[in-house]
Amino acid sequence: MQTDLTINGHTYALNADQRTTLLDALRQHLGLTGAKKGCDHGQCGACTVLVNGRRINSCLTLACMHDGDEIVTIEGIGSEEDLSALQQAFMSEDGFQCGYCTPGQICSATAMLEEVKAGWPSHVSDSLDGKPRLSDEEISERMSGNLCRCACYPNIVAAIRSASEASS
C-alpha cells in the first residue's frame, strides 16, 4: 500500500505494510531515525513528532492514516548547523545525557510552548482562564509525557524556561 507523507516539507512515497506505525515508517523506511522507539506503546514519549503542529506519539498511529498531514520530526526542527532556540538551550542547560529521549523531548517542548501560547490550561494551572504562566511546575507537568531515565528533568525544565524567556 502506498501512502504519500509530507514530512519536514518534503513528500515521501511510503510503500510499506499497512501495520507500519508512523514511527516505524520514519525509522525503518524513510531514514529519519531522529524519532526514537523507547516503549512502542505511548508510555515514554521518545517517539514524539508534530502532526499538523500538534505533538503526538508516533508509535501509536499508523503511517497509512497520515496522507495529507504536515509532519515535522526533529530533523525538521533544526539541523546540527542550524539549531532551534530550544535545541540550543538543551545543549547549554545539559538537558540530556544519553540523548535517546532528547528528540522527543524537544519536539514535545516545541509544541508545548505553542499550547501555552494558545492558552491551554494544564493539570496544575490554578485557573482555567486561558492565561497560563509558564512556571517550573507548569513546564514539568506539561512535559511529563516524556520520560528521561538519565533524569535530566531539572535541566530540561531549565532549558525550556530559558528558551521561552528568550523568545518572549
Partner: peptide, 21 residues
Amino acid sequence: LDRSEGALKVSGKAVYAHEWP
C-alpha cells in the same frame, strides 16, 4: 562545558544501535 556530541543528539543525528543504514 557543553557536551561535545550535544549537537548530534539534539538534532537527532547521533546514530544508535538499531538505526544504522
